[in-house]
Design a protein around this nucleic acid. Structure first.
Lengths: 253, 253
DNA sequence: AACGGGTTTTGATCTGGATCACACGCCGCC
DNA sequence: GGCGGCGTGTGATCCAGATCAAAACCCGTT
């Protein structure tokens, strides 16, 4: 049942053309997941046995919408986007909507794994990522054995639920410029470092992806950004974005 | 910790001006929840001890957005809407978005209860409802004691996750008429009975609420409906709606 | 430096659906 | 019966944002 019984089985990991795969021996990485904090040593042991380390490069798909869900991924390092594609009649005009961006410490693919249904979403690495993969069955078995861990996982699902509700609210209640402002603030807090000029960051999302995260067209996003730049709220130097007036930006929400 | 230790404490149930509250003695009701099917007898015993039966009339708020989350509700009978309100500057112009309609067998308020945060959504009974309420702490304790049940609950959260993703996709990818068609199909399958004329149902949602569920204005919904009626796809006789051509309606998706 | 592909910007036009305004029907109540 | 009040239908207008089209830019290659 555990990974160790089927060493080469990581090839089954769907869609992951990964740079390196190996079994996890040290527990340090796992203990960094905040939502697992304080759980039994025994649990970490068991999790480590079931987990494989997996590195994928930026731009690589972790899994795609509709694929059978094989495993859960604990994102140890890097950032990944979760998205849905429109049923898009005919290729060339299908659109994507980004459902969220996962950073260090996130769990990816949990809902579909628990349901045992095909992936309801796609996941693609934005930057190089290091993840711990755990097979569906192993996860379920672990959850049965460690109720506390089960509860923690349920809590991450609950949190994800809230985030999705937030997204719906955002899409329905706020205008495009407002959503752009929010998206920028999110990126700034997650990826930015504070300088005396303001908060600087090199977005892990392309303009196209920012548009998909915001739920608007690429053109509309572009306009919104340059407008904010004209108003002196942003600086769009090169590949970096500087939020010159965070307060102003927040006011646009 | 259990309900029995604090008999009159149901008054703490937030926002529930309920017709009747009593402790649950028989287990039959609980066993009807599909997602709990096959769990230990012992679990149902424990759940019954922790649960209170609660009846509320149609239109009554079960809880409101922002309230502290006190309990989880197992919806035994009736239908309830889950919704979010816009932060709406100034009363009179705040809008609602319906996140979903819960029917028999659903669990309500689980995410916020697990997170131990304020309600991220409001819940209001659409019809008279019978529910089983379980306090947050009791639920958590139960989940620790019965890992299997914990897993089942996690699965309902996962399912809810998928539904929310569906909602996002619907809002972003589909046009208003398409969304109306989908909403009608949903209502028809959940609330309709098949006659030779077609599928007939008296919607539990008002036009206003249908609009909120669809993410469009009341006027737009109204227009969409009468258009479908003109085209002979719907019949809007009195308070009932008849889907005359389900296939046609499905094609509009 | 010239080329070529992809991504981003900018500009011009079009349109779906919001919004506003008002008429209507339905009910309960005085 | 008449009289509000609320949930609806319908028409007329407007505008945010999509879409279409075409430059400008960015980078790696030759």
């Amino acid at each position: 049942m555990h990974g160790e019984n089927a060493p080469p089985s990581w090839a089954r990991l769907p869609g992951a053309r990964c740079r390196a795969v190996e079994h996890l021996t040290k527990l340090e990485g796992l203990k960094e997941f905040e939502f697992l904090d304080g759980l039994d040593e025994e649990f970490f042991q068991a999790l480590a046995i079931a987990a494989a380390v997996l590195e994928i490069g930026g731009g690589t798909a972790l899994y795609r919408e509709g694929e059978p869900s094989g495993a859960v991924y604990f994102l140890h390092e890097g950032r990944a986007k979760l998205y849905r594609s429109s049923g898009g009649r005919g290729p060339g005009k299908e659109r994507d909507q980004i459902l969220g961006v996962a950073g260090d410490g996130a769990v990816i693919g949990l809902p579909s794994a628990l349901e045992g249904r095909p992936q309801s979403q796609g996941a693609t690495a934005l930057t190089d990522c290091v993840l711990y993969a755990v097979f569906r069955d192993d996860l379920v078995e672990l959850m049965g054995r460690f109720p506390d861990a089960s509860l923690r996982l349920a809590r991450t699902l609950a949190a994800r639920n809230r985030e999705l509700e937030d997204l719906v609210g955002d899409l329905v209640f706020h205008s495009a410029p407002q959503r752009v402002a929010r998206m920028l603030l999110n990126l700034a807090t997650e990826e930015g470092r504070v300088t005396k000029k303001g908060v600087v960051f090199e977005p892990s999302l392309s303009r196209q992806e920012m548009a998909e995260a915001t739920g608007i067209s690429r053109e509309a996003l572009s306009r919104a950004l340059s407008r904010l730049a004209h108003e002196g709220i942003l600086d769009l130097g090169g590949r970096a974005i500087t939020v010159l007036k965070p307060a102003e930006l927040r006011a646009r929400t």
